[in-house]
Nucleic acid binder design. Structure first.
Lengths: 326, 326
DNA sequence: CTGAAAGCGCTTACAG
DNA sequence: CTGAAAGCGCTTACAG
């Protein structure tokens, strides 16, 4: 059996109270007692039971992270940073990959609540979460508008979309196509909005392809394929994530299009993986680590009960990485 | 305040015992009572506190997953599958990104023990874990030999290394270089062993470059750069992961080498991300989802106390994906 | 500086 | 079919 505080107390010849105090470095304890207790703990190979502790303190130090899937390099990298920062602050991470499926999100949310998480960071367009707002649960959203009261942290999507579109125009593209996710997701919307605004200002016509099931590779390829038959004249592509951009590049090569001579391409995200695997891709780089830091920063302030002065939107600066696809 | 069982009991006019029985569907309860309890639960928006439950049952239904980093597409994808399977079986995942750093691994391990995880899946060369074996904690390792008693699940690394090397030989490469991690990691070793065996059989000389800090991109690039000055004659590259392969490709292009004419390249892993972003890369594909399934399968058997008949090594079949880099 | 007692929110024998 | 009591392993007022 695992040793418990009582076992340590007995071996050290003190009360459980005293052991607990040593453990938490709380109140006055004589050095002699402290040493006795420490000795007993090492002898028994004791480590405290955080479940019991949480039950009493009502603080789990657990953060729930709900992402579509860590398979996607953006979310994989974001999850890494979130977890890493949490760990450095003494928080533990319960990971949830919802694949953006509503039923899964609901189940995960229930699970997180039952496990008494102190807060949740959401990277999905999870609306079920609104039902839990009344429990005044601390929540921060990455890149998605969920409600008036849930803070959103994101890259400056409008600026990113503007930069990407302007670059393509500057490079002489006449017909610029947007490859985007579906419109309901707020993040896509701002990038798209900037694309449309910028094109319209130049008296150009927006052409938008929507990829509904972001994590269905085949579907994605089918839709991209349509661009070549429906808009063979397209000479500029702004993809709202690098995976879309890469898929387009593959298809373009198959169609004998030269990059960047025949068609120029800009992606979005600029993850470490894509920068290593496809360094030639011009892309808008998100400050992923910074996004993670800000999100946790705000979440912790919510947890500490400062439901006051944090901003509803936090837009972090993006940067343009120019490769050879433009 | 969050409602508790007692609140539900009071509202339903029954005892806490009865509510607990309804909750767990345990023992006999009249339908009428069950309905009353359910009504009260919805009225109060009650959900059970798993922390309290765990304390009593001594089952947390928590699985700890220790990976180097989900930033890496292989581990990001593996983590996704592991978590997904866990969720479908009612287990929750505590995520740890250790970056292969010993001090972090030790801290994570402590944390997992304190949180009473039912089992741990390790994707790092975490040796500190051996100290916990006495606690007879359920552990499964992915790809790394940790001890005689810890089951290892991996792709068939030797076969993969053999396939890769043989392909390069068959394609006419005279001087084949291996880009590998450091030798201590068992996984690398088998792939390397196969590379060496296969070359020696053909009376060729192995040339091995070791990349010590796998997650330090710059260091990685420096070492790869050396290949061009030290072995300009190299016309075949077997990289033990796709990221190394991609880094080499980038460098080769910079050096004006044509692929596959001047140099042929085979990677390892074949993650979804790399297959999408760099589909031209020839690689050995690991059955990542299968690895996840097997690992959890074995872990659950350990947890259920069947410390009997599971194999120490489980090697899952790899497959060769031929792109245009060979 | 140290200890006895109560309680965190559950579940499970044990009675009835 | 239902309830009172004890206990999971901890922590924290409250005494002393």
């Amino acid at each position: 059996m695992k040793p418990k505080i009582e076992d340590v107390a007995r071996l050290a010849g003190v009360s459980p109270t005293t052991v607990s105090r040593v453990l938490n470095d709380r109140g006055y304890i004589s050095n002699q007692t402290r040493d006795k207790v420490h000795d007993a703990m090492t002898k028994l190979n004791y480590f405290p039971n955080d479940v019991a502790r949480s039950l009493f303190t009502k603080r789990s130090n657990l953060i729930g992270i709900i992402m579509p899937t860590t398979t996607n390099p953006f979310f994989g990298e974001l999850t890494f940073h979130l977890e890493n920062i949490c760990a450095s602050l003494g928080y533990k991470v319960l990971l949830c990959n919802s694949l953006n499926q509503k039923d899964k999100e609901k189940k995960y949310l229930d699970m997180l609540m039952r496990n008494q998480v102190d807060g949740i960071i959401v990277g999905t367009h999870n609306l079920g979460i609104l039902n839990y707002q009344k429990q005044n649960l601390a929540v921060v959203s990455i890149d998605r508008y969920l409600s008036e009261t849930i803070p959103v942290v994101s890259s400056d999507n409008y600026e990113g979309g503007k930069l990407a579109t302007e670059l393509l125009i500057r490079k002489g593209c006449k017909q610029i196509v947007l490859i985007d996710g579906v419109k309901e997701l707020e993040k896509s919307y701002k990038r798209r909005e900037a694309y449309i605004d910028t094109l319209v200002r130049e008296v150009k016509v927006p052409i938008i392809y929507e990829i509904p099931e972001v994590f269905n590779v085949q579907k994605q390829q089918e839709i991209i394929e349509n661009i070549f038959s429906e808009h063979p004249e397209a000479d500029g592509i702004f993809a709202t994530n690098d995976i879309f951009a890469a898929s387009y590049i593959t298809a373009a090569k198959r169609h004998g299009k030269k990059i960047p001579e025949d068609v120029k391409i800009v992606g979005y995200d600029g993850t470490e993986t894509v920068r290593t695997v496809l360094p030639e891709l011009t892309t808008i780089r998100q400050p992923i680590e910074l996004i993670a830091k800000e999100a946790i920063n705000i979440l912790l302030r919510e947890i500490e009960g400062e439901f006051t002065d944090f901003p509803h939107e936090t837009k972090l600066p993006i940067s343009l990485l120019e490769g050879s696809t433009t």
